[in-house]
Simulated assay, not measured.
Amino acid sequence: MAREKIIGPGGPSDDDRKRDAALRPKLLREVIGQKKVAERLQIAVDASRKLKEPLGHILFDGPPGLGKTTFATVLPNELSTTIQMTSGPALSKPADMLPFLTNLEEGSILFIDEIHRMPRVVEEFIYPAMEDFRIDIVLGEGVNARTISMTLKRFTLIGATTRGGMLSGPMRDRFKMREHLDYYTIGELAQIVGINAKKLNTPVSDGACNEIARRSRGTPRVANSLLHWARIYSAARSDGTISEPLAHEALDVKEVDADGLDKNDRRYLEVLIDVFSGGPTGVEAIGATMNISTDTLTDEIEPYLLREQFLVRSPRGRMATPKAFALLQKPFPKPRPDEKGPSLFD
């Protein structure tokens, strides 16, 4: 039987990407949240203008949906330059990089999303491009092979990754700036919801902005998705205005609860508690019971449960916390006298 693949609140669809692009800020001063990161980038932009030099290469890392692509698209607007965009999985061989590198303008930006998924052979090919603004092209094979060195325009490479640890050391060291993006506060998300609702010409109350923000997992992409749902729900069931009661009703229909958990998050906890007595158990066993791939569990479901302390990963497997038992209104089991090894009571 085929395993189910879930696109949860943290996993963007094509519609999510288009919607995010339309709602993104255009300049650094319009960015909400990530204040320290924006401040350091503004300093780098001001220096680039005064020194008449390209920005140094920049690496953004952090969980999905926190604004890595937003920062990458804001910077060329600040510098009045162009940007080319690609992704690590699309670059399977060095030749795939040539159209991007040879079409670069002086001071322009090349953005590579999911840069950790770029093959090592492509990484090594762009090392001289990043350091010396040149590339070496090998023509021919065997004894007739010769290398041509091509000079490039000075440019800025911006990489984005959700798994910074998967980048090789030499690649990571070639970025002059490395910025980690963290989750947003409810206040920041409420402000983002309010601004984006105006862009969508949708009246929304402050209470509705806070309600949407509270269920958005600290992530602007999720907030935009929930705002979109509340907007179409209001258009279908009301007068198009998103009030706090209507936002509450819309999100309940979408099965996103007050803690930001969706039906798959709750199903995970139900399986762990009802089937495996709260654990510890392996993720493979949970995936087999839910008929969902382990990659989906570890990449899309577990991170939020871990962050919100509904789940812990122990050497013996996944374990539900007292908070998870309370959420499902289940009594938390006392440790058995003969229980060995680490537990939540240690």
Score class of each variant (00 low, 15 high):
residue 181 L to K: 04
residue 182 D to H: 13
residue 183 Y to D: 02
residue 189 L to S: 08
residue 190 A to T: 11
residue 191 Q to H: 09
residue 192 I to Y: 02
residue 192 I to P: 00
residue 192 I to T: 06
residue 193 V to H: 00
residue 193 V to G: 04
residue 194 G to C: 03
residue 195 I to G: 00
residue 198 K to W: 00
residue 198 K to C: 02
residue 198 K to G: 05
residue 199 K to I: 02
residue 199 K to E: 05
residue 200 L to Q: 11
residue 201 N to S: 09
residue 202 T to G: 01
residue 203 P to L: 04
residue 204 V to P: 02
residue 204 V to R: 01
residue 205 S to E: 13
residue 206 D to Q: 13
residue 207 G to E: 12
residue 208 A to I: 13
residue 208 A to W: 09
residue 209 C to Y: 07
residue 210 N to E: 14
residue 211 E to F: 08
residue 211 E to A: 14
residue 212 I to R: 03
residue 214 R to P: 04
residue 215 R to F: 04
residue 215 R to D: 10
residue 215 R to V: 12
residue 223 A to V: 11
residue 223 A to N: 01
residue 224 N to W: 03
residue 224 N to A: 07
residue 224 N to R: 08
residue 225 S to W: 05
residue 225 S to K: 14
residue 226 L to S: 04
residue 226 L to C: 04
residue 231 R to W: 02
residue 232 I to K: 09
residue 233 Y to R: 03
residue 234 S to R: 06
residue 237 R to T: 15
residue 239 D to F: 03
residue 240 G to D: 07
residue 240 G to C: 06
residue 242 I to W: 05
residue 244 E to A: 15
residue 244 E to H: 10
residue 245 P to H: 07
residue 246 L to F: 11
residue 246 L to G: 10
residue 246 L to Y: 05
residue 248 H to A: 14
residue 253 V to R: 09
residue 253 V to D: 13
residue 254 K to F: 08
residue 254 K to M: 11
residue 255 E to H: 10
residue 256 V to D: 09
residue 257 D to K: 03
residue 257 D to C: 13
residue 257 D to N: 15
residue 257 D to L: 09
residue 259 D to H: 14
residue 263 K to W: 01
residue 264 N to S: 04
residue 264 N to F: 13
residue 264 N to P: 00
residue 266 R to I: 15
residue 266 R to Q: 15
residue 267 R to G: 01
residue 269 L to R: 02
residue 271 V to D: 04
residue 271 V to P: 00
residue 272 L to N: 08
residue 273 I to E: 04
residue 274 D to F: 03
residue 276 F to N: 04
